[in-house]
Design a binder for these strands. Structure first.
Lengths: 362, 362
DNA sequence: TTGAAAGCGCTACCAG
DNA sequence: CTGGTAGCGCTTTCAA
C-alpha cells in the first residue's frame, strides 16, 4: 500500500503520471513535449489531452539536469531603480525572450561581497552567462576580481559579460559591451565650449568610478582642444544622484559663482543642478546652461528639455545577449577569438533646450 | 578507457569529483556543504579544502530535484523601466535576498499571451511564488484568468501574489497586496478642492485599468463630498505616460481651457502636463495647479516639486515577499485562512509646491 | 560519525 | 515510430 505512484498524489504531476494516464511510455511523452522528434499524430493527441487535463508542465530542474533545459542569463545590477540600468535590463530581457531564454535579475547594492555571492549563486544555477551592469570602481583588485569571476564562470561552462565598464586586460574569458563614453563627453563638452562657455562647473561623479573617469577624460580633452584651462576648482565629485547635483551647485554658487554652465555626469545629476539653480533665482539656460549624460526619459521631461549625450542602453543589452547566444551556438570553435570580445557602441549629443551662449559678463 | 570519471574532465566539477579528491564519500561532501548535519572537524576541513581548490559550487538544479534548493520567487512586470514597478521589484528582491532566496524577473509587455507563457515558465521552474505587478485590465476574463493561474500554481506547490491590483473573488488560492488607491485619490482631489479649485482637468489613465478606475472613483467621491459637479468633459483617458499628459493638456487647452488644476493619474503624466502648460505660456502653480500620484523620485525632481500621493511601493514588495515566506514556513496548517490573503497598505498626500489657489477669474 | 544506495523527474540512447 | 532504461548531480534514509 505504500506505493507512491497513486494517481492523484499531492504536489506536482510528473511525466510518469502523464504517461500512465495516456497509456504510453515516458519516453513518448518526453518526445511529444520537447517536439524535437517525430511522433504519430495519434500519440501526440493522446498525450496532449492528458497534459491539458492535468495542467502539466515539465520540471525545469529535472530537464536541465538531464541535459535539456532553457538557457538562462543572469543580470547583476547595482540598483534596479536606476533608469539606465533598467533600460539595459530591458534590452537583455527582450532579446532573451525572443530566443525563449529566461533572465534572472540580482541586485548587488554596490556591495562586493554580495556581488561575489550572486556570481556564485548564478554559477550554481548553471546560467549561460552572467551580465554585470554599470560602471565599476577602479580599485586595484578590480581586474583580478573580474578575471577570477570570468575564469570561474568559464570553467563552469558559463560566461562573463561586462556591460558599460572597461574591458579586462590580458587573456581573460569575458566579453565586454561598452559605449564610447569618452567620445560622448568630448562631444558634449565641445558643444558647451563652442557656445562660448569658458567657466564650466564639472560634476563627473565619483573619482573612482570608471564611468566618471572616462567622462572626465573626454571633457578635459575637449578643453585642451579649445585651449581653455580646465580649472580643478570647478570640478566637484560625488554620487550620480539628484541630491549630489543639487548640493554641488549650491556649494559652487557660494564658492565659485562665476560659472556659466554645468557639465553634469548624468541626467539625474543635471536635474538636481537645475533645481538648485532655480532655487537660487537663476534661469536655465538664460543665466546658466546645463548638459547631462545618458539621455534617459527624464532628460526630455525636464523644463527646459536637457541637452545630453545619448547612450544606447537598451541596445547594449540586446547586443550583450546576442553575443552570448552567438558564442553558444558558435560552439567551441573560436573560443579565444579576440573579435567580438569587446564591442563598443556609439554615443551622440542630443541637442535640446538647456544650452545657450553665456550671458554677457556684468 | 571509456570511464568518464577522469579527474579533470571538462565542464563543471561535481560532488563526486570533490568526494574522490578528498577521499570521502559523496554523502559526506553533501553534508559538509549543506551544513545541516553533524560532521567531524577533520572531514569538514578536508572537504572544504578541495572545494576551494576546485572552485566547486553545487548544481542548483540537481539539488532542487533531490529535495533541497533555494526558494525562488518570480516577479512578473509589464515594463521594467517603470519607476513604480522597479521599486516594488526592489522591495521584493531585498526581502528575498535577506532570506537567501532568489528572484527572477520577467516582463510581459502587457501581452496576455506572454503573461501566460511566463506563468507556465515559472511553474516549470518550481518557484515558490509568482508575483504579478501592476494594475490589470478589467476584462471579463480577468477574474477567470487569474483564478486559473492561482489554482494552477497552487496545484504545483507554488502561490500567486497580486500586487497593486484588486483581489480575486471567491475562494481562490492567491494573496493580494494592495494599497488604498481610492483613498489616496480622494485625499488628493480633496486637497485641490479645498484650495478652491472647481474646474479640474482629470487624467485618470485608461478607463479599463483597475488602477485608473480606483483613482477615478476616489476623485469623484471627493467632488461629491464638496458638492462640486464632476464634468465628464474635463476627463481625458489615456496611457500612463509623459506623452499622454502632454497631449491631453494640449488638447484641453484648446477645447476646455477654463480648468485651473490638473489631477494627473501618475507623476509621469503630471510631468507631461506640466511641460505642456509651460509650452503654452502658463505658469505652475500660479496659473494652473498640478498634482500627481505615485510619489516616484521624479515628483520631487520637477520644478515646482510635485504635490502627489505617496504609494509605498517598495514596502509592498517587501510585504508581498514576507507573505509568501510566512505561508511557506507556516506549513499547510492555515492554508485557507482569510487573514493575510488581502493586505492593504496606506497612502497619503505629500504636499509640495505645485498647488496654489486658483487665480481670480478674468 | 561515515558510507552505500535509492531515488528526485527528465532526456537520450539503444532496441524492437 | 515506440518502449525500456541508464544516468544527470544531489539529498537522504538506512546500515555499519
Amino acid at each position: 500500500m505504500s506505493q507512491r505512484k497513486a494517481t492523484s498524489d499531492a504536489g506536482r504531476a510528473t511525466i510518469r503520471d502523464v504517461a500512465e494516464r495516456a497509456g504510453v511510455s515516458v519516453a513518448s511523452v518526453s518526445r511529444v513535449l520537447s517536439g524535437n522528434y517525430p511522433v504519430s499524430e495519434e500519440l501526440r493527441r493522446r498525450v496532449m489531452k492528458v497534459v491539458r487535463d492535468l495542467d502539466y508542465v515539465t520540471n525545469a530542474h529535472a530537464r536541465s539536469l538531464a541535459g535539456g533545459g532553457t538557457p538562462t542569463v543572469a543580470i547583476l545590477i547595482n540598483n534596479i531603480t536606476g533608469a539606465a540600468f533598467a533600460h539595459v535590463a530591458k534590452g537583455v530581457e527582450g532579446a532573451a525572450a525572443l530566443r525563449g531564454w529566461l533572465s534572472l535579475v540580482g541586485t548587488t547594492g554596490d556591495d562586493p561581497e554580495r556581488e561575489l555571492a550572486l556570481v556564485n549563486l548564478m554559477r550554481q544555477q548553471g546560467v549561460a552567462a552572467v551580465i554585470l551592469l554599470g560602471g565599476a570602481y577602479d580599485y586595484d583588485e578590480y581586474q583580478l576580481r573580474m578575471a577570477r569571476f570570468a575564469r570561474s564562470l568559464d570553467a563552469a561552462g558559463s560566461h562573463l559579460v561586462l556591460v558599460g565598464r572597461p574591458p579586462l586586460e590580458g587573456d581573460v574569458p569575458a566579453t565586454t559591451v561598452d559605449y564610447d563614453n569618452e567620445g560622448g563627453a568630448y562631444a558634449m563638452a565641445s558643444h558647451l565650449l563652442s557656445a562660448g562657455h569658458r567657466r564650466v562647473l564639472v560634476l563627473p561623479g565619483h573619482a573612482e568610478l570608471t564611468t566618471a573617469q572616462a567622462r572626465s577624460r573626454g571633457a578635459q580633452r575637449a578643453f585642451e582642444a579649445y585651449g581653455v584651462p580646465f580649472d580643478p576648482g570647478l570640478v566637484r565629485h560625488g554620487r550620480y544622484d539628484y541630491e549630489h547635483g543639487y548640493e554641488a551647485v549650491e556649494a559652487a554658487l557660494h564658492e565659485t559663482p562665476d560659472f556659466t554652465a554645468v557639465l553634469a555626469g548624468t541626467d539625474v545629476v543635471a536635474a538636481g543642478a537645475m533645481q538648485a539653480l532655480r532655487a537660487a533665482g537663476l534661469r536655465v539656460p538664460e543665466d546658466v546652461s546645463i548638459v547631462g549624460y545618458d539621455d534617459i526619459p527624464l532628460a526630455s521631461q525636464l523644463t527646459p528639455q536637457l541637452t545630453t549625450v545619448h547612450v544606447p542602453y537598451e541596445e547594449m543589452g540586446r547586443v550583450a545577449l546576442r553575443a552570448v547566444a552567438d558564442r553558444r551556438e558558435g560552439g567551441a570553435g573560436r573560443r579565444k577569438s579576440a573579435d567580438g570580445d569587446h564591442l563598443v557602441l556609439g554615443t551622440h549629443v542630443v541637442v535640446r533646450n538647456s544650452v545657450q551662449p553665456p550671458p554677457r559678463r556684468g
